[in-house]
């Protein structure tokens, strides 16, 4: 019996391999924006970690919409990872027609290091090319046993904080800046405040998803600093009976921008479809999907519908840190403020 099973699985393996080889030989047809109704094309959206679930749904909706309007079948492939790492991959040749990353700085890098899109890419779409935004909130265990209400509570002795490493994670940089903004506006010395906060960090994961898993799955830490959408996803996946979202008094306005990677899309002949895809993100339909996945919509009517989901709070944009290039150089570069206050403990 065992022998037959082995034989059967090997026959299956051989068949699959053969099928794949023929498939590779047969799929060299070129997509073109000359694509006619009835034809199909593929877009690759290279994105950051917490958007997997969002884009799965958005992509299906866009494919329907695009087929109805143009008669062209569009399939959108997804690639997810840490925002900085994904930008690096696009620079090294990952064939992204579209990027949707955690912060503008990472797309700036693609423009600067590989010239795959113009430096002024962020002016091309409405709202700084960010169809939805997010902010940084806190996730605590049910009943909030450590009574954490705001950033100030995170530096208390014995509070264990989970946040990813700002050197590798886009979300972690937003976490850091949100805490900085709180200290600035509450008469605390930001450096001392952040040094005290990071002294309380138990695990410094590489990315936002890693931190969520540490907090939720491995049960480490009293409070997780994370994207609002990531906090809602954790509630949905692991039960609202285990965790609570704490909205602080102040946080950052996280613009998570999108852009067509011109050079790649031109070569693939997918430019029109890629642009239609990004514009679709601003439609009420896509905005509604985004709101359901915990992203703050830009569309006023959709925002009104989800008003009770997104608590009002003071939001500080990246501009108040002098924009990304300056914030990056001052805080997160080698030997920058983060290195000083984290390494110096």
């Amino acid at each position: 019996m065992a022998f037959h099973r082995i034989l059967r699985s090997f026959t299956a393996l051989a068949l699959i391999t053969a099928a794949l080889l023929t498939q590779i030989a047969g799929c060299s047809s070129k997509d073109g924006d000359t694509a006619q109704p009835g034809t199909s094309l593929t877009l690759l959206n290279v994105s950051y970690d917490p958007t997997r679930e969002l884009y799965k749904e958005v992509n299906a909706a866009f494919a329907d919409d695009y087929r109805r309007k143009t008669g062209i079948d569009v399939r959108i492939e997804q690639s997810h990872g840490g925002s900085g790492k994904q930008a690096r991959s696009v620079i090294d040749g990952l064939q992204a027609d579209v990027v949707s990353l955690a912060l503008g700085y990472d797309i700036d890098q693609i423009a600067a290091k590989a010239s795959l899109l113009p430096a002024d890419w962020q002016c091309r779409l409405p709202c700084n090319s960010s169809p939805f935004t997010s902010t940084i909130v806190m996730l605590v265990r049910k009943g909030n046993p450590r009574a954490i209400r705001d950033w100030g509570d995170l530096t208390r002795q014995g509070v264990s904080v989970i946040t990813p490493n700002p050197k590798t994670s886009g979300g972690a940089r937003w976490n850091y800046l949100a805490a900085w903004a709180f200290a600035q506006r509450n008469g605390r010395d930001p450096r001392e405040f952040l040094a005290a906060l990071y002294a309380n960090v138990a695990v410094l994961d590489l990315g936002a998803r890693g931190s969520t898993t540490t907090f939720v799955q491995r049960n480490i830490g009293d409070v997780l600093l994370t994207w609002e959408n990531e906090a809602y996803l954790a509630l949905k996946e692991f039960g609202a009976d285990r965790f609570e979202v704490v909205v602080p008094s102040i946080s950052v306005l996280c613009e998570t921008p999108v852009a067509v990677v011109d050079t790649v899309a031109m070569r693939h002949g997918t430019r029109n479809a890629a642009e239609a895809y990004l514009q679709f993100l601003y439609t009420p339909q896509a905005q509604d999907i985004a709101a359901r996945h915990g992203f703050r919509p830009r569309d006023a009517s959709v925002a009104a519908r989800y008003a009770d989901k997104f608590a009002p709070l003071v939001l500080v944009g990246i501009d108040s840190f002098g924009g990304w290039p300056q914030a990056q150089a001052r805080h997160f570069a080698q030997g920058g403020l983060f290195d000083q206050l984290y390494g110096g403990r």
């Binding site: 997997r52 997804q78 690639s79 898993t213």
Partner: peptide, 20 residues
């Protein structure tokens, strides 16, 4: 490049599922 359904091998797919 972690393109789901195209360049993910089995170990990479396991990681992606775990992250989802």
């Amino acid at each position: 490049g972690h393109i789901a359904g195209r360049t993910n091998t089995l170990p990479l797919h396991v990681e992606a599922l775990y992250n989802e």
